[in-house]
Amino acid sequence: MRITAAQRTENENRVRAAIDRLLRGEIPPGGKCDIKTLASEAVVDRTAFYGTRPYAHLRVEFEQRLQAMQDAGEIPDPREAQIFRLKAENNKLKERLDRSEQKVEDLTDFRGQALAQLAAQREEIVRLREAAAGTARVSHLPSPRTTVIGSCS
């Protein structure tokens, strides 16, 4: 069924108004900032936005404006903005986890080296004590004397 020029103009005005609302972030519940929601908000058949259909130029205009906003760092769809924010936060947390895991691995290696060194030093001390117990040439030093400092009058 064909529509009149006045109906087409009215439909285009509704589509442009819906584009403006969506790009301002006025997303209806359950909707997104996309062509499907645009068509339902403008009460126009979604297929009219594709190919050589009458509103294909409005779809292109909508997509270009949306892309320009996204390139500028503006995301009109609150859910998309939340997804973007959560992905960035997730990446930060992954990097932090990787650093923590590397630190734990480094500290575990250090602990193993320290324990091995302590065990080797203990074995050396035991060996030296056994060697010293077998010889009479080792003499023990006397305990240090404590001196009292007298007061001057």
Rank of each mutant, 00 (worst) to 15 (best):
K92P: 07
A132Y: 02
R96H: 12
V104Y: 10
A116I: 00
L86Y: 04
R99M: 10
Q121Y: 13
L128V: 01
V60T: 09
R122A: 14
I83G: 01
R137T: 08
Q113F: 02
K94F: 09
L128W: 01
P78I: 04
Q64P: 03
C152L: 15
E61P: 02
L66Q: 01
P78V: 02
Q70Y: 07
A72K: 05
R79G: 09
T146R: 13
A114D: 08
K94D: 06
L107A: 05
D109G: 05
G150C: 04
G73Q: 08
T108W: 00
Q64A: 10
G134L: 05
S151L: 06
L118N: 07
A132H: 02
L93F: 12
R127E: 04
A114V: 07
V60E: 04
E105W: 03
A132L: 01
N90K: 03
F84L: 09
V126T: 12
G112C: 00
E80L: 04
I125F: 06
Q117T: 08
Q64I: 11
E61D: 11
E130P: 00
L86S: 06
A133W: 01
L58S: 04
A116P: 00
Q102G: 14
E89F: 13
Q82V: 10
I125L: 14
S100N: 11
E95L: 15
Q82Y: 08
Q102Y: 13
F84H: 15
Q102R: 15
R137F: 00
G134Y: 00
S100I: 13
E89C: 11
V60K: 06
A132M: 04
L66A: 02
P142W: 01
E124F: 07
N91F: 12
A81N: 11
P144W: 07
S151N: 05
H57V: 13
H140G: 07
E95T: 15
E101F: 02
A116K: 03
L58K: 08
I125W: 07
R59H: 13
E95G: 15
K103N: 12
S100Q: 13
Q64N: 09
A68L: 08
S139V: 15
A119K: 10
M69C: 06
Q113H: 02
A68M: 07
P144V: 10
V126G: 00
F110H: 09
S151C: 04
A136R: 05
R85T: 10
P142G: 09
L86P: 02
R111P: 00
R137I: 02
A132P: 00
R122T: 10
A81Y: 08
